[in-house]
Computed example of a mutant assay.
Amino acid sequence: MSYVTNTSYGTWNNHIDQYASGLEHSVTEAFGSEGADGFDFDGIVSAYRNAINDALPASVALAGDEFIGPAYTDDQDFDGYLLNEHGELDIKGIVDDIDLWEIVARYELWSADRVAQELGYKTPTANATARKKMSAWGVKAAVHKTNPDSGRVQAYYLSGEVRAAHEARPGQGVGGGKKAQA
Score class of each variant (00 low, 15 high):
residue 1 M to T: 14
residue 4 V to H: 01
residue 8 S to W: 03
residue 9 Y to S: 00
residue 10 G to Y: 05
residue 11 T to H: 01
residue 12 W to I: 13
residue 12 W to A: 14
residue 12 W to Q: 12
residue 15 H to Y: 00
residue 16 I to K: 02
residue 16 I to C: 02
residue 17 D to M: 06
residue 21 S to R: 11
residue 23 L to E: 02
residue 24 E to N: 11
residue 25 H to A: 14
residue 30 A to F: 06
residue 30 A to W: 03
residue 36 A to Y: 10
residue 36 A to S: 10
residue 37 D to F: 15
residue 37 D to Q: 12
residue 38 G to R: 05
residue 39 F to D: 06
residue 40 D to C: 08
residue 40 D to E: 09
residue 50 N to S: 13
residue 56 L to R: 03
residue 57 P to F: 06
residue 57 P to A: 02
residue 57 P to K: 00
residue 58 A to N: 15
residue 60 V to W: 01
residue 60 V to Q: 02
residue 65 D to A: 06
residue 66 E to F: 01
residue 74 D to P: 01
residue 77 D to H: 13
residue 82 L to P: 02
residue 85 E to V: 11
residue 86 H to W: 11
residue 86 H to P: 00
residue 86 H to K: 14
residue 93 G to T: 01
residue 94 I to E: 10
residue 96 D to N: 13
residue 99 D to R: 04
residue 100 L to G: 09
residue 101 W to P: 04
residue 102 E to I: 00
residue 104 V to A: 12
residue 105 A to R: 15
residue 106 R to W: 02
residue 107 Y to P: 05
residue 108 E to F: 01
residue 112 A to H: 02
residue 115 V to R: 10
residue 116 A to I: 10
residue 119 L to H: 05
residue 121 Y to S: 02
residue 122 K to I: 11
residue 123 T to W: 05
residue 126 A to F: 00
residue 132 K to Y: 14
residue 132 K to L: 13
residue 134 M to T: 09
residue 139 V to G: 04
residue 139 V to S: 07
residue 144 H to F: 05
residue 146 T to R: 02
residue 148 P to C: 02
residue 150 S to N: 06
residue 151 G to M: 05
residue 153 V to E: 12
residue 154 Q to M: 13
residue 154 Q to I: 05
residue 154 Q to C: 08
residue 156 Y to A: 01
residue 158 L to G: 15
residue 160 G to D: 06
residue 163 R to D: 09
residue 164 A to W: 09
residue 166 H to Y: 14
residue 169 R to V: 10
residue 176 G to D: 05
residue 178 K to V: 15
residue 182 A to V: 10
